[in-house]
Simulated assay, not measured.
Amino acid sequence: MSFAAKPYLRSVTIDPAADADPDDYPFSIPAVRELGVLEPHPDVTFFVGENGAGKSTVLEAIAVALDMPAEGGTRNVLREQQEVSPLHRCLKLVKGFKRPRYSYFLRAESLFNVFTYLDSLPGNPEPSLHLRSHGEAFMDVLQGFSGDGIYLLDEPEAALSPNRQLAALAVIDRLVKQGAQFIIATHSPILLAYPRAKILLFDETGISHVDYEDTEHYAVTRDFLNHYPRRLQQLLDDAD
C-alpha cells in the first residue's frame, strides 16, 4: 500500500464551538483542558503520564469519535457500552484522505467482556478466546490486525509479560511497515522504546512531547534495576 495514505488521523483538537465547562469533568483535567492541537505520529504515538492524568480519557474519546465502541473492539461490536465522558462529542478530528479499512480499540480492562460478546454472536466460527490466557488472547487479537488500519491500545502491558511485550513490539513494527497507525496509552518502558514513535506526556501543565530517555518510566526503571538493593532498602526503611 502507499504510505502517503498515513496518517489516517492527522490531528485532534477541542472544537471551539463545543460547550466545555473547564470546571466539569473531564475538562477539569489539565491535559484535557490544555489539549491544544494533538498531532499523532503517522506510525506510533504513545500517551504517558501518571494515573488520572487523562491519557486513557483522551484515548477513549478519540476511539468513540472514530465510531469505535468505548468498551473496545471493532466498529462492528454492537452492544450496550459502558458510560463514557462527554469528551468525544467535543473533539474535532482531522483525518487523512484515505479511510482505513480496519480499526480496533483494545483496552485490557474490558477485553473479557468483548470476548464474551463475540462468543454470543450466532454462527461465530472462531474458537473462543476465553480458552486462551489473557496474554495469549491479547496477542491473538494483535496478530489479527491488518496493515491498512488504525489501532488504539489502552495499557496493553496489563495483559502481557515482559517477553510478550517484546513480541508485541515486533508485531506493531510489522504492521507499521505495512501501513498501520497506532495510538497507545502505556506505562511500559519496553513498549515506549519503539524507535519510530512520538511520546506525549500528559501532566498538570497539559500535553508535551518527550524523548524516551527523558520519560519517568525509563529513568525510574533504569535506576531501580541498576541499584535495586539500595532502592529497596530506602523504600522499605521509609515505609517503616
Rank of each mutant, 00 (worst) to 15 (best):
R230W: 08
Y117D: 00
Y212P: 04
P7G: 11
D43I: 09
P162K: 07
T116R: 15
R99T: 10
A108E: 08
I184Q: 07
P229N: 06
R164P: 05
D23L: 05
S120A: 10
D211N: 14
L191K: 06
L232A: 13
D214G: 15
R164L: 14
A4C: 10
N51P: 14
S188Y: 10
V32M: 09
A239H: 09
K92G: 04
A180G: 02
N163T: 14
L225Q: 15
V114R: 03
D237S: 12
H187C: 02
R230D: 14
I199A: 03
A61R: 00
F3R: 11
V58I: 14
L66N: 09
E204N: 14
E71P: 01
P86N: 05
E50P: 02
E109F: 04
A61F: 01
V141G: 01
K95A: 01
K177D: 12
S208P: 08
R79Y: 08
D21K: 00
E60L: 08
S120K: 08
P86C: 06
D21I: 06
A137K: 02
V141K: 09
K177T: 13
A53M: 08
A70W: 15
L121K: 14
L111V: 04
P127W: 11
A70N: 15
N51F: 12
H134G: 04
S128P: 02
Y194T: 10
L169K: 15
A197E: 07
L192H: 04
K6F: 03
G72A: 03
H187A: 09
R196E: 11
L121W: 12
L175P: 03
A61C: 01
L191M: 15
L169W: 13
R231I: 15
L200Y: 10
R132S: 15
H187V: 03
T205Q: 15
A167S: 11
R164G: 07
D223Q: 06
Q233T: 13
P26I: 09
L59G: 13
D237V: 09
L192K: 02
R231C: 11
A61P: 07
K92N: 01
L169V: 13
P7L: 07
V58D: 06
L66I: 02
P16A: 10
A108H: 14
V114E: 02
D203S: 09
F182P: 05
Y151V: 05
H88N: 07
A5V: 06
A18W: 00
E136G: 10
N163A: 14
D19G: 03
L35R: 06
E126S: 14
L38E: 08
E83P: 06
S133P: 10
A4I: 13
Y212K: 06
L106M: 15
E80G: 06
V37I: 06
R107G: 12
A185G: 09
L153Y: 13
Y102S: 11
L236S: 06
H130F: 11
D24W: 00
T215N: 05
P195N: 01
L38T: 00
E83N: 01
D154R: 10
G52K: 14
H41I: 09
D203G: 03
P22K: 00
